Structure formats: C-alpha cells, structure tokens
Lab assay of single mutants.
Amino acid sequence: TVKFKYKGEEKQVDISKIKKVWRVGKMISFTYDEGGGKTGRGAVSEKDAPKELLQ
C-alpha cells in the first residue's frame, strides 16, 4: 500500500493498482486504477516511497 496526499487529502492505494511510475526530481509520481475506468494520480517523496514502487 502506498500512502500519499493529493490536493490536501490523505489517500492510499494498493501497489497492485499502480499502472505507471516515474521520477520527478526527489518525488516519485504515479498513476493508478481508481476503478470505474478512472485513472488517479499521486506522488510521494523518494524517502517515503515503498521499495516496490522504486523497482
């Protein structure tokens, strides 16, 4: 599970739902399947990112 803040809201998403991951400076950005055909997005700092996300 990845915990992150998006627009001031605390969120979390299961690693299995993450589609795409990329690095922006010291942040790790990602998109994930929100269900219902929607794609969500989020970002975590490199130090807070789970190891599975960095692979």
Rank of each mutant, 00 (worst) to 15 (best):
W22D: 03
I28H: 00
E52L: 10
V13G: 00
S16T: 10
V21K: 03
D33A: 06
G40F: 06
E34R: 08
S45C: 15
T39N: 06
K17M: 14
R23N: 04
K51P: 15
M27E: 04
I18R: 00
G36E: 13
K17C: 12
K47I: 11
A49H: 01
L53R: 01
T31C: 09
V2E: 00
R41H: 12
A43L: 15
D48E: 12
F4W: 11
G25K: 05
D48P: 01
G25M: 03
L54E: 03
Q55P: 06
K51F: 15
I15K: 02
F30C: 00
G42L: 02
G42I: 02
W22V: 08
E52W: 14
D33S: 06
G40P: 02
K7Y: 09
G40T: 05
E52N: 07
K7Q: 10
V13L: 06
R41T: 11
E52S: 10
S29K: 15
K26S: 14
E34K: 09
G35D: 08
G40W: 04
A43E: 11
K26H: 14
G25T: 02
F30Y: 01
T31Q: 05
R23E: 02
D48L: 11
G36C: 12
V13M: 04
E34W: 04
E10V: 14
Y6V: 14
K38Y: 06
I28K: 00
A49M: 05
F4N: 01
E52A: 12
R41K: 08
K11S: 03
G40R: 06
K17V: 07
Q55W: 11
V2I: 15
A49V: 05
S16A: 13
G42F: 04
E10G: 05
T1M: 14
E46W: 14
A43R: 13
S45M: 13
L54N: 03
K51R: 12
M27T: 10
F4T: 02
E9H: 10
S45P: 14
V2W: 03
G37S: 05
K11H: 09
K19H: 08
D14F: 08
G8W: 03
W22N: 04
Q12H: 09
S45D: 14
G40S: 08
M27W: 15
K51L: 15
K19V: 11
E9P: 02
L53N: 01
I15E: 02
Q12V: 15
E46A: 14
W22P: 01
I28D: 00
L54I: 15
T39Y: 10
L53D: 00
P50R: 03
G36I: 05
D14N: 09
